[in-house]
């Protein structure tokens, strides 16, 4: 859906559901997911419908993902870090993670 204007920039590798994704320094988690062409990042706790980042400005909460074991992080506000483990959030969050 998206391409990078410029492939320069410091490469950062994160994992999404265990799969390695090439990101760039300066990406947020949500941007990295979009750049990698990942279709959805969570399913809703209400109907289980798939959702993807929508506003990218911290407002819509559609990009909620699990980051390094902590659920319901706003992917568009979290900068990527080398080795970061991102997981799709499936339905309701599990208490304790």
């Amino acid at each position: 859906m998206y391409k990078r204007l410029d492939e320069a920039g410091t490469a950062v590798t994160i994992t999404v559901d265990g799969r390695q994704i090439a990101a760039r320094a300066g990406d947020t988690v949500a941007a990295a997911l979009i750049a990698a062409g990942i279709a959805h990042c969570r399913t809703t706790p209400v109907s289980g419908a798939p959702r993807a980042p929508y506003c990218l400005m911290g407002v819509c909460f559609e990009c909620l993902v699990t980051v390094d074991g902590i659920g319901s992080r706003q992917g568009c506000l979290v900068p990527v870090r080398e080795g970061m483990a991102v997981e799709t959030q499936v339905g309701k969050r599990e208490a304790g993670r």
Partner: peptide, 27 residues
């Protein structure tokens, strides 16, 4: 409007400004 693949234009603009991402598929 809740389907993956539907975004706000502002979101796309943020991705352009902050990450240099531009739409490349059928948009």
């Amino acid at each position: 409007w809740t389907l993956p693949g539907v975004m706000s234009a502002g979101g796309a603009q943020t991705a352009l400004k902050a990450q240099g991402l531009v739409p490349s598929g059928r948009t």
